[in-house]
Structure formats: C-alpha cells, structure tokens
Amino acid sequence: MIINHPLLGPRDSEEFVYLGSTDLINRPTNWEEEASAEDFYQYQYIRENIAGDHQELWYHEQGDQSWLVVTRNTLTHEIKKVELAQDVSRAMGRGK
C-alpha cells in the first residue's frame, strides 16, 4: 500500500507500523472515579470490526516518527484521508 503522508508525500506502507483503531485516542480521563474501570476496559479491549471506512493509527517508524490517522477502506484498501494524529487528537479535545 502507499500512504500519502501529509508532510512527506506518498510513502510505501513498509515504512510504517500499524497499531489499530483511532478508538485508542479516546483514553478515559476519569481514572479517579470508581466506575472508570468499565471505561478503561472498553477503551482497551472493545473494537468495532468495520467492513468499510476505518480510521486507524499508523506510525512512520522508518521515516519521521509521526503517528498518522489513516482512513482506509478495509474491503478495498482504498485510502481516503491521511492526517497527523496530533491534529486529530487536538481536534477531539485532547491536550495535556
């Protein structure tokens, strides 16, 4: 596959390491609450098995070491969008 890196242009997927769904961005922040155990359990283990457009995290290990959010169709491998994970994470309200 070819991943069109937002900073570096098209790169072979061999240069990347795959992690998984962008669900991993939503790490719960309510760790002090008793009930957060369930939230962390959901965060760590529960994933949708999507047949279609899937937002997923890739790491450009053999390149600039940026984490990317790649929107890839799991049926066709078509890649519709590639963003810096940092930007996506901020847009989702994460900061410090």
Binding site: V17, L19, L57, Y59, W67, Q86, R94
Partner: peptide, 19 residues
Amino acid sequence: AVSVYRHLQFCHQVLWPDL
C-alpha cells in the same frame, strides 16, 4: 529500545499532544 520509543511517541502525539 525501539518499541518503548514508539510507545512514548504514541503517548505524546496521540494521547497528550499539547505537552
């Protein structure tokens, strides 16, 4: 060595991008 560095980059870029 490699996987810990990758993990730290994940923690920074994905979880706490404004640190």
